[in-house]
Write a protein that binds this DNA or RNA. Structure first.
Lengths: 184, 184
DNA sequence: TCATATATACTCACTGAGTGAGTATATATG
DNA sequence: CATATATACTCACTCAGTGAGTATATATGA
């Protein structure tokens, strides 16, 4: 317990990769697309976008090629590599997340790119996320049951988390109808 | 938009300060207390606790004194300074937070320490937090209203945030009765 | 009795998240 | 003609966070 484990928050990275699946592009444009399409899901500053792209390049998930322009400064044209493509689809179909924040951020991001690049696996993504929530609700419930009664603040915290997870279930049910996702 | 602006997440710092209000202590003990009392509200690793304490010292919010022990390694005994005390109570009574996460984390932490050190200002803290939520619900509602309809994912994200804020309102109403907090 | 686990008490090196400002140029707008 | 805005990045910096390591003492079980 609890979140902020420095592990989450990987998906702006994958979002940038996801945009590159549609074809090569450059930092400025990727950041722009990110802001207009997912700007209310995540916040991503320009410099941060560039930093992430640098990291992706150093890991071999994308490759960069300088393209001179007559007037404006040269562009770093970016292409996703085979490895990057593999990593992206692994994240898309296997990545999960349990807490409210990561669901809003990661799950929505995955849904967004699934719709773009893998519409046929939307229901699989949806269902595994939904199962994950189910099971973490159960875990939380037992955790709360076994919490010593004097732990007022820990209890309040876990109570809210539990209620948030239940809320997310309803919110996801709403998504299911909107996206015409079939049950398991 | 959206959170994770690198600004939030200041309260483990204040929590450590808060424990020092009750009297001097040392890193190991402070971390232990944190984990047992607020371990389900926040996660705070040991090394992180020490890092924060270092920062607090460099800012002059706490002072350290080496205390030799016959057998175990020496302790850094930590005391809160006048400045630290001032900073702590400012945070306690003025600090706010709008998103689900920061409310669960920061608000609960403030409530915890208010109960310990300032029970008379609990209702003020509660009410200003509650007002803050009210006003950000209004903001979110208008934001959603003015969102172009094709922005499916941004809308879904904001919808969930709105519902989460409403959930928090109910959760806080529950706290009000538990803590016998009077209305404004 | 001897190994092993656990508690005490911290340090260190490292990666990553994130910001804010700066650089340089082109085009549109009042 | 000045100013704002869009294009396209870079840089220096701070804070967050982890995981492993160091060193010692005591309890616990085979």
């Amino acid at each position: 317990m609890t979140e902020s484990k420095h592990s989450g928050n990987i998906s702006p990275e994958f979002a940038l990769l996801g945009f590159l699946i549609s074809g090569q592009s450059h930092g400025y444009d990727l950041h722009q697309r990110f802001v207009t399409e997912l700007g209310h899901v995540w916040h991503l500053s320009q410099s941060q976008a560039y930093a992430i792209l640098k990291r992706l390049e150093s890991r071999g998930d994308i490759s960069a090629h300088l393209v001179e322009q007559e007037k404006l400064p040269a562009r770093q044209m970016l292409r996703i590599t085979t490895q990057g493509r593999k990593r992206f689809f692994e994240w898309l179909e296997l990545g999960l997340g349990t807490n409210a924040r990561s669901i809003r951020l990661e799950f929505l991001t995955r849904l967004f790119f699934a719709q773009l690049h893998r519409p046929e696996s939307i229901s699989q993504i949806y269902n595994s996320q939904s199962d994950e929530i189910e099971s973490s609700i159960v875990k939380l419930e037992t955790l709360i049951e076994h919490l010593p009664p004097e732990q007022t603040f820990n209890r309040l915290s876990l109570d809210l988390r539990l209620q948030q997870l239940r809320l997310i279930q309803n919110w996801m049910a709403e998504i299911r109808t909107q996206f015409h996702i079939s049950r398991i």
